[in-house]
């Protein structure tokens, strides 16, 4: 007789069927419950969304600053501002001297006229300069160091040497503030993580409290269901889905809000970036990041519901009736 296997398969099928049916029932009945109290649902979902917006926005700002600093790091450019009285010929000598330096990969001379043109284009103060009789800008030599010198300490020693050359007014090197920025970013990242944990807990409490109120409302129903043979899982299921919907809708709404912020900020940031090379664009989250945060929000909602219902069921059994 070979009825054992098909029997087991049929049982498994039946079991899966029952499970799916119960899940589906809980999923949609909990959605129906949310629908029946639309204002309360809306307020709860908004509170959750607003709590989640802050860490999300923080995360994106930090990610962008990180990307920007990485981007800038590729520009190990040193600018030598020459003294105003240095002329074209003297500047040419300095240029040759720099070309001979084994630390230097490339040099470029920006004469007074080119400098003025650039200044006009980017600063927006062109008219002010027009009013001046003379071109007040110095000649500038831009130096790109070789790969081996792309290191803050080595570069600092180069800069110090060039600073002492005759005819050089001052040497500007932007990496120092970049280093400092990166230090601050690391700190801010840790702060953001902490903020995320705190606000995540706040969202957990909001969902938990809402579920607690819902339980309060359905006390009698839970009691009757337990008397009719409902397992803890059966009682818990609709509340878990309630948490699921709160997390899902709240998380989705949070992303929408953050996206709105992003759209609002992008033109300004792009204009600012245009002042430099125009190479940097404000970045929004990737689909993967969106999915992960959204998943966390859903998990958070379900975890809150699970905790509250389990605690309630526990207290039913352990309090004197």
């Amino acid at each position: 007789m070979s009825t054992g296997r098909p029997g087991a398969v049929a049982r498994l099928k039946r079991w899966v069927g029952v499970w799916l049916r119960l899940q589906g029932h809980a999923l949609f009945s909990s959605l129906g419950r949310l629908w029946r109290t639309p204002w309360m649902t809306l307020v709860t979902v908004l509170v959750i969304a607003v709590t989640l917006v802050l860490p999300l926005a923080f995360y994106l700002v930090l990610e962008n600053l990180h990307a920007l600093s990485e981007h800038l790091e590729n520009h190990w450019r040193v600018s030598l501002y020459l003294e105003p009285e240095v002329d074209r010929k003297k500047a040419g000598e300095l240029l040759r001297k720099l070309k001979g330096d084994r630390a230097v990969a490339e040099v470029r001379l920006i004469d007074k006229e080119t400098g003025l043109a650039q200044f006009r284009r980017y600063s927006g103060f062109g008219d002010v300069l027009q009013a001046l009789p003379d071109n007040p800008l110095p000649i500038v030599i831009e130096v790109l160091p070789r790969r081996a010198w792309e290191d803050p300490e080595k570069l600092a020693s180069l800069v110090e040497r060039w600073q002492r050359w005759k005819g050089v007014d001052f040497v500007q090197w932007d990496m120092r503030w970049l280093q400092r920025l990166k230090g601050w970013l690391d700190l801010a990242e840790r702060g953001a993580m902490l903020l995320g944990v705190i606000l995540g807990s706040a969202a957990l409490l909001v969902v938990g409290n809402t579920v607690r109120l819902e339980i309060e409302d359905r006390r009698r129903e839970i009691e009757v269901m337990l008397l009719l043979g409902a397992t803890d899982r059966f009682v818990r299921r609709p509340f878990l889905y309630l948490g699921f919907w709160y997390g899902c809708i709240g998380g989705g709404l949070a992303w929408l809000l953050v996206y709105g912020l992003y759209l609002g900020l992008r033109p300004q940031v792009d204009r600012l970036a245009g002042l430099y090379d125009g190479l940097y664009h404000l970045r929004f989250a990737t689909p993967g990041e969106i999915a992960i945060f959204w998943g966390w929000a859903v998990l958070l909602g379900m975890a809150a519901a699970w905790l509250v219902v389990s605690r309630y069921l526990w207290s039913l059994r352990h309090s004197p009736a």
């Binding site: 069927g17 029952v18 049916r21 119960l22 029932h25 009698r220 129903e221 009691e223 009757v224 269901m225 008397l227 009719l228 043979g229 409902a230 059966f234």
Partner: peptide, 24 residues
Amino acid sequence: YRLLHDRSVFDNVALPLLIAGYGP
């Protein structure tokens, strides 16, 4: 009686069947 007042007569009677996992 212990009936659930926000559910119809049908849903009240169907509740133990739903709990026991019967199909629709």
